[in-house]
Design a protein around this nucleic acid. Structure first.
Lengths: 222, 222
DNA sequence: CCGGCGCTCAACCTTTCGGTTGACGTTCGG
DNA sequence: CCGAACGTCAACCGAAAGGTTGAGCGCCGG
């Protein structure tokens, strides 16, 4: 936080990691307007972001603005984990379009210092960067609410195994195929499904997929 | 196309319609660099875009850069239809993140002059704007390929009714609930499903949803 | 004008799924 | 140390979904 000298307003060095040129240009335009921000690098891939974030000394990065969805290759969450694993690592602020449970938890577990949505107004963005640079956590209100909901209703949380089954169900596999995929008996798969239905308040596999998708427990693409 | 005077490089007036302030700033930064572009307005909602695109005379808009996904309220495709329905309407260039069949077809049917993906490089963006302003169509390569695929395999295209059924299946409804929803008998619903399975090459409702989603025939959110 | 396609429905059968009950071992925290 | 939660499996039954055959209607285009 105090890599740069200067008394009242230490400069915050930023790295922008997003695969969309337009978004990078937008972030640059928005954040360059802040006098205490300095954008020292951009990265169009998660791999490039990991590399760029490793710079030390006077070229070091204070805060990384990290998208989660890159095209092919490494995912933003993996890049976040790689960056924060190092010592004296910069803070990583995740900036993405979606606010699903899966994404948020993955980012938080990867060591993200904050989670913002791309529809955030510029002021909120700048405030979050300063919050992250100061070592505190920055969560968008919508994200914070979702985390609170999750805390409040722990019974509804699907277990690891149940999520695994549900993902295969979402991919269109039958119980028999799932049992082979996970080296289980069909009875076990059905048992998991019954528990899933109870937790989600539904009574069929398709409804479970719909409910889990709308609640952000699972994602469609990966 | 010749609203503005000037011989060699007539100015192209642009309207940016996107609900993300960062994206608007990025588009502005990228497009303001082009000497023959002038951004005359921005809109954060689809409704505002329809209104702003209605300006006539010297304040008129030549090309609208339209996002498809706005938060609540009107959809970008609906706004595109509303804008292009008028006489002497500006060209609408759809600029979105996804390249699903459903989105592309909706945009083309709404009268869009082009379809670009947000990960396009700035040069491609500027070129598409000029193409659209000149009255021609501008399709991103990925989008064009998808349309070609669709032309090549017309047998796989789901009918209107089949898509309607499939959407309800995706929402987790049983055949009985679907039949009531659409005022059909269960026999008809099953008949549609059999045809859907054949066209998609699957053999269950969940697999049909998975296949249709991955091919972009249906979308998760709306 | 007729063939094809989409939409509708019925009857029947097989397979899968949904739901229950009951059971056993493990792991973790009070 | 023991209950709670998770994960595993079996047997069973009714309900739903998958699959087939067959058939009637309306519309569009060759």
């Amino acid at each position: 936080m105090t890599r740069a000298p200067g008394a009242g307003a230490p400069t915050i060095r930023l790295l922008l990691a997003d695969d969309h040129p337009v978004v990078r240009a937008g972030l640059r335009a928005v954040l360059d307007a802040e006098p205490d921000f300095e954008i020292v690098a951009e990265a169009a891939t998660a791999e490039a972001a990991v590399e760029a974030a490793a710079a030390q000394g006077p070229e070091g990065v204070d805060v990384v603005l990290m998208d989660l969805q890159f095209g092919p290759g490494m995912h933003g969450a993996a890049a976040t984990a790689a960056i924060t694993a190092r010592e004296d690592a910069p803070r990583v602020l995740v900036l993405t379009t979606y606010d699903t449970d899966a994404d948020i938890l993955a980012a938080v577990e990867a060591g993200a210092a904050g989670y913002l949505l791309k529809d955030a107004p510029p002021e909120e963005l700048a405030a979050a960067v300063r919050t992250a640079a100061s070592g505190r956590s920055a969560l968008a209100p919508a994200v914070a609410n979702r985390l609170m909901d999750r805390m409040r209703t722990p019974g509804e949380a699907l277990s690891r195994r149940e999520l695994e089954v549900l993902r295969l169900v979402k991919d269109g596999l039958s119980n028999q195929r799932i049992s082979k995929e996970l080296f289980l008996s069909q009875a076990t798969v059905k048992s998991h499904l019954v528990h899933i239905y109870a937790k989600l308040g539904v009574d069929s596999r398709t409804a479970a997929v719909a409910a889990a998708t709308s609640r952000g427990l699972i994602r469609d693409r990966p």
